[in-house]
Amino acid sequence: DLTPEQQSLLHYIMDSYNRQCIPQYITRKLLQEDFSAEENFLLLTEMATSHVQVLVEFTKKLPGFQTLDHEDQIALLKGSAVEAMFLRSAEIFNRKMPHGHTDLLEERIRNSGMSDDYITPMFNFYKSLEELKMTQEEYSLLTAVVILTPDRQYIKDKESVEKLQEPLLEVLQKLCQVQHPENPQHFARLLGRLTELRTFNHHHAEMLMSWRVNDHKFTPLLCEIWDVQ
């Protein structure tokens, strides 16, 4: 079982993860705005921008993150943003959003100028996570593990990052054993999804290029975190 320290770490991560959500006024637009490719693109980039702010707030609260060198903090955020956002989007699709909204969001993504070459693998990934029946604890811990990944580009003090990631991996491994006793491979399968997330990360720049319908601009925060000119 989890030790008392591990229990409190888990509750802290969960609480911090659940506190952050995209503001209602943005999710409400999902239902209201019309369905042009242009409107969908603008709405999805507004949601993504809010998503990044949510991600930064969650990251700032990760145990030990504030002790890291500032440049390494930025490098961790930039290196993990795409993967953490894919995880969060998968959770939104698989768990959080009321059923009707999921269809609307999917409809908007499919009609926003993004190429099917990227949309199909994205929804297949969401489905693959749904099949894993991930719990909220697993989503929050896995997101924290993704953010505190030491082998990101430009990280100077990898060792310090590794020391922050290790306890989270230990809690996640124990949690998988407790929550999925029927599936001893569950933890390994979760880690396997991290490899898939890396692939999305590698192809993200191309996806963005294909998504820029009528040379729309991304917001300054998205340009910075996604390294888009």
Binding site: E57, T59, Q73, I74, L77, L221, E224
Partner: peptide
């Protein structure tokens, strides 16, 4: 160079 947006967000107090 002026503080990047990310740096500003990181340095701002944690908001709920």
């Amino acid at each position: 160079d002026e503080l990047s947006l990310l740096k500003k967000l990181l340095l701002s107090p944690a908001n709920v």
